[in-house]
Amino acid sequence: MDQCIFTAVRKANRVLFRRYQDALSETGVSIVQLSILRALERQGPLALSRLADDLAMERTSLYRTIEPLIDSGAVHVESALTGKSKVAKLTVEGRSTIERVMPFWAKAQERVLNEVALTDAPNFQRTLNAIAKLST
């Protein structure tokens, strides 16, 4: 294999980011913000450090990205019962935001799958997940 996997994945990431970002542009929610909301929806309340790790984000990037979600009432952040950590929780407004944005995400998802002609999407997803787990 002559092509660097890193270069190929990085290029693909940029293109996919733009596709999803463009699809969500009229919602006022970025694709990264949607991923934060969905992670909280799936996993429940999470310490911000754990949320950053789960999303493979730098903590400072997470803090910047989650701030508008806090300001809009979609996410509530409070001090953990023990220690200094902060815990993020999805609110009713956050669930409503997910419901409002998901049709736009679904159109982007369908478009990407059709354009790439991913007939074996489950295996592709497993490969991507395996790459993501290299950091753990």
Score class of each variant (00 low, 15 high):
1 M>F: 09
1 M>W: 08
3 Q>I: 15
3 Q>P: 10
4 C>W: 08
7 T>Q: 15
8 A>M: 14
9 V>S: 09
9 V>I: 12
10 R>A: 15
11 K>Q: 13
11 K>L: 14
12 A>R: 07
12 A>V: 04
12 A>W: 04
14 R>M: 13
15 V>L: 09
15 V>W: 03
17 F>V: 05
17 F>G: 11
17 F>E: 11
18 R>I: 02
19 R>T: 14
20 Y>A: 10
22 D>W: 01
23 A>Y: 00
24 L>H: 00
24 L>N: 00
24 L>R: 00
25 S>L: 04
25 S>P: 05
25 S>W: 01
27 T>I: 00
28 G>S: 07
32 V>E: 11
32 V>K: 14
34 L>C: 02
38 R>D: 07
39 A>K: 10
40 L>G: 07
41 E>T: 03
41 E>Y: 10
43 Q>M: 13
44 G>C: 10
44 G>Y: 08
44 G>R: 09
45 P>C: 06
45 P>R: 07
46 L>M: 15
46 L>D: 11
46 L>A: 09
46 L>G: 07
47 A>K: 09
47 A>P: 04
47 A>V: 02
47 A>C: 03
48 L>E: 12
49 S>Q: 14
49 S>A: 13
50 R>A: 14
51 L>R: 02
52 A>W: 05
52 A>E: 04
53 D>K: 14
54 D>G: 12
54 D>R: 08
54 D>V: 02
55 L>I: 05
56 A>K: 14
57 M>Q: 02
58 E>D: 03
59 R>G: 04
61 S>A: 11
61 S>H: 08
61 S>M: 06
62 L>W: 04
65 T>P: 02
65 T>G: 03
67 E>R: 15
67 E>A: 15
68 P>C: 07
68 P>Q: 07
68 P>D: 05
69 L>I: 05
70 I>T: 14
72 S>M: 15
73 G>C: 10
73 G>H: 10
74 A>P: 04
75 V>H: 08
76 H>P: 01
76 H>Q: 11
77 V>C: 14
79 S>K: 14
82 T>C: 08
83 G>H: 01
83 G>N: 01
84 K>A: 09
84 K>G: 06
86 K>W: 06
87 V>R: 06
90 L>S: 04
91 T>E: 06
91 T>F: 08
92 V>R: 13
92 V>T: 11
92 V>Y: 06
92 V>M: 10
93 E>G: 03
96 S>M: 08
98 I>S: 00
102 M>L: 09
102 M>H: 02
103 P>G: 01
103 P>C: 01
104 F>G: 00
105 W>H: 07
106 A>Y: 03
107 K>E: 03
107 K>R: 07
108 A>S: 07
108 A>T: 00
109 Q>L: 08
110 E>A: 06
110 E>V: 00
112 V>K: 01
112 V>D: 01
113 L>D: 10
114 N>I: 01
117 A>Y: 01
118 L>K: 02
119 T>P: 05
119 T>R: 11
122 P>A: 03
122 P>E: 03
124 F>S: 13
124 F>K: 08
125 Q>L: 14
126 R>V: 11
128 L>D: 06
128 L>W: 10
128 L>R: 11
129 N>K: 15
130 A>H: 10
131 I>C: 13
132 A>E: 13
133 K>L: 15
134 L>G: 07
135 S>D: 13
135 S>K: 15
136 T>Q: 12
136 T>E: 12
136 T>L: 10
136 T>V: 10
